[in-house]
Simulated assay, not measured.
Amino acid sequence: MSRDGVGIDLETSIGYALKEASSALRTAMEEVLRPLDMTVTRYSCLELLAQRPGSSNSELARGAFVTRQSMNVLLQTLEREGLVTRPTEAPVGKALPTRLTARGRRSLEQATAAVRSVEVRMLSGMTAAERDSAFRSLQSIVQALRGDENRA
Rank of each mutant, 00 (worst) to 15 (best):
R106I: 01
P91V: 05
S137A: 15
P35C: 12
L49Y: 08
G104F: 01
D132G: 14
E109C: 00
R103Q: 15
S2M: 10
V40F: 05
M38T: 02
A152F: 12
L96N: 08
R42T: 10
R103C: 02
K94G: 02
R52Q: 11
R121S: 15
G5N: 11
E149Y: 03
S133Y: 08
E11R: 13
A129M: 06
L46A: 03
E47G: 01
I8S: 07
G5S: 05
E20H: 13
T12D: 05
T12R: 14
R136S: 12
L78E: 09
M29T: 04
E89I: 10
L36H: 06
Q143D: 13
G104I: 00
G5A: 14
G104V: 00
Y43S: 04
G82C: 04
V73L: 13
S107C: 11
L108I: 02
S140N: 04
T67V: 09
G104N: 04
Q110I: 00
S133L: 14
L100C: 13
I8D: 10
A114H: 03
R136Y: 11
G15Q: 12
A24W: 01
A17M: 09
T27Q: 15
A152T: 13
P53V: 08
A129R: 15
V118C: 04
T112R: 15
L96P: 05
L36Q: 08
E11K: 07
R116S: 08
G104D: 03
T101L: 11
E149A: 15
G93Y: 05
A128F: 04
D37C: 06
A144E: 09
V40M: 03
R26N: 15
L33N: 02
G104H: 00
R34V: 02
S140Q: 11
L100M: 12
A95P: 00
V6W: 09
L96C: 07
E119R: 15
A90V: 12
L46M: 07
L36D: 06
V115E: 05
A129T: 13
A114P: 02
E31F: 07
G7I: 01
L108W: 00
G82Y: 04
I8E: 14
I14S: 06
A128K: 11
E59N: 10
R146Y: 02
Y16K: 06
A50T: 02
V115L: 10
T27V: 14
S55D: 10
E109K: 12
A61I: 01
F65R: 14
E109S: 15
A102D: 13
R62C: 02
A24Y: 01
E20L: 12
F135A: 11
A17E: 13
E31Y: 05
M29Y: 05
S23W: 10
P87G: 12
R116Y: 01
E59F: 07
Q51K: 15
L145M: 13
F135C: 05
L138T: 08
A102I: 06
R86C: 03
R121C: 07
Q76S: 12
F135S: 09
R136N: 11
L46T: 08
S56I: 06
Q139H: 10
S70T: 11
V6D: 03
M126T: 05
A128M: 08
L18C: 09
G147C: 09
R80M: 08
L18M: 12
Q76P: 00
S133N: 06
F65M: 10
A64V: 06
